[in-house]
Structure formats: C-alpha cells, structure tokens
Computed example of a mutant assay.
Amino acid sequence: MLKAIHHVAIICADYARAKYFYTEILGLTIVAEHYRQQRNSYKLDLALPNGEQIELFSFAEAPPRPSYPEAQGLRHLAFAVDDIQRVVAYLTGKGIAVEPIRVDPYTGKQFTFFNDPDGLPLELYQL
C-alpha cells in the first residue's frame, strides 16, 4: 500500500534564512520555487539524493511551533547518513550546535540531533 515518504512539509519563520540553511548548509537540491502572491507565501520544493522531498513554506502569520516541552504531533525529521562523525564535524564547522552522538539501544546505530533556524529538531541517523 504505502511505498515511501514522498515529502515532508515545513513552515518557516524567515524564508531566506531557511532556504539558505536547507540548500547551502544541508545541500538539498531546489526542484521548484514559487511565490504565491494571493497568500504572500513562498513554496520551495527541495530534494534529497534519493528523490524524497521537503516542501518549505513561508506564511506571514504562522504561529511558532511549540517544542519544549515536546508537544503532540510530529516530533522530528531524521536524515540518514553514512558517516555521522563527518556530518557532525561539517555542521559544527558551520556554527551549528549538535548534541553529542548517542547509540540507539535497540539498533546499535549512532544518532544525534540539531535544530534548523526555527528550532525544528532534526536528527542524523547513521546507516
């Protein structure tokens, strides 16, 4: 029935800052970018190497996301990586705070968390 995740939608507070973060820092590829005048909103389609996508939206009056303590709903977005140490070093070199790497007690895999410019929790999970 379900085959894969096609996309994840994110609403940001500062479109230019979020676009820079997801394209220039995280390296996602721009598929399409649209300004929707009737909504005073941007919609940016971004792709990961495997074709999965992130839709990045801006809305002028969007409320901030409650996060701490964690609210109900989507908890975080996790990205698979081959070399977590290398990605953590890259992100910290760009001035992005990354939590210490931990080991998942159920899978034995390494993982860690960092935040996007709006505080959305993002996870790195080593394959």
Rank of each mutant, 00 (worst) to 15 (best):
Y15L: 05
I30H: 02
F59T: 03
D83H: 14
Y22D: 01
A13T: 11
D118V: 10
A32Q: 09
G95Q: 07
F57R: 03
K94D: 02
Y68P: 00
L91Y: 01
E55F: 03
R39V: 13
M1N: 12
I11H: 13
P63C: 03
N50M: 08
E52M: 12
A16L: 09
E33R: 03
V87I: 15
L2N: 05
D118E: 11
P121I: 05
N40E: 13
E24A: 15
K43L: 14
G27D: 14
E55R: 00
Y106G: 11
Y106V: 13
G108R: 01
E123L: 14
I96E: 06
Y22K: 00
A78D: 07
R36T: 12
A32C: 07
T29E: 14
E52N: 12
E52L: 07
D14I: 00
E61R: 09
Q126K: 05
E123S: 12
E70S: 11
T112K: 08
G119V: 14
I10Y: 02
S41T: 12
K43M: 13
L74F: 06
F113Q: 07
P121W: 08
F114T: 01
V98D: 02
A97G: 06
I54M: 04
L122A: 08
R102T: 09
H6N: 15
I10D: 10
P63D: 03
H7Q: 04
R86Q: 15
R65Q: 06
H6L: 14
P64T: 09
Y42M: 01
